[in-house]
Design a binder for these strands. Structure first.
Lengths: 141, 141
DNA sequence: TATAAACCTGACCAAAATAGTCAAGTATCA
DNA sequence: TGATACTTGACTATTTTGGTCAGGTTTATA
């Protein structure tokens, strides 16, 4: 099981951006340089974040992106959801015609994976962007 | 983030096997048929489980596999570990020469991923094979 | 002791997902 | 009217996954 870069990058970029929340837009170029993430890739990611109304774009010179909601109200769940980073434990859910592995019944461990998903999602539901910014800020003192 | 089949199959197969714990060896052929997992793939998986002393093989006719420890003492962590299913959230750890993304410092979200790993591993540490067998048995009543 | 059942090993491979790059725009501020 | 920055979509190399295939070896039992 692994977390993909897309999800990680999205969170990193948003933490970077959140530090300037309310001050001025942050350009992707700056984020790219500071976080070491390819600009082109960031654009793909921010396009999705914008569609899900997590950020707002500001065009033109001195433009960039700003948060569309308070950092406290942006949960990691929202971010992962926006960039299609999902916690997938079983395929069975995809085509509900079949059970698991083509059987008509649930596989022996079906409930387990459900539990695990819930467990992980709980973690993401609790954490807000604001939490991350604060943690990071405290660490620097 | 997704869980790979290898980890899932390993757990499914072991739950299947654990139901006959102490009675007689279970052949991979039987598990393959019951769980709908390719025999060849099961062999790969059980080879790893045996090396980590989670199961023991019984050769010859009527042979198969048996648990090498009590089901209660086999945690999911052990199983995942055996089949190289790891919870990987950050790459940074791999080459400790660099920080994250080639920076000399930890990335803004490094602690977050560490926390997440711990959170997930806690879940796996608590669950034993025995728990799963019981849950499954109760569900059938 | 022959043979079939079952384990064991390693090489190989196709498909999917990932992690981007590249190109060609459009909008807007200064 | 540039320069800056967002916007979009197509494309691609690499890696991982999820197996298959071939050719063994070992051992119980008839």
């Amino acid at each position: 099981m692994r977390l993909t870069s897309k999800g990680r990058y999205a969170v990193m970029a948003l933490v970077d951006l959140a530090r300037f929340d309310g001050i001025n837009p942050v350009s992707l170029r700056d984020i790219s340089l500071r976080q070491g993430i390819s600009l082109d890739y960031l654009e793909q990611i921010f396009s999705k974040l914008r569609k899900k109304e997590i950020v707002q774009s500001v065009r033109g010179t001195q433009g960039g992106y700003v948060l569309n909601r308070k950092a406290k109200e942006i949960k990691l769940t929202n971010i992962f959801d926006a960039v299609d980073e999902k916690v997938k434990t079983v395929q069975c859910k995809k085509d509900s015609k079949k059970g698991c592995n083509g059987k008509s019944t649930k596989c022996l461990t079906h409930n387990l994976w459900d539990e695990l998903e819930t467990h992980i999602n709980n973690f993401f539901d609790k954490k807000s962007l604001d939490d991350l910014v604060k943690e990071n800020f405290e660490r620097r003192l």
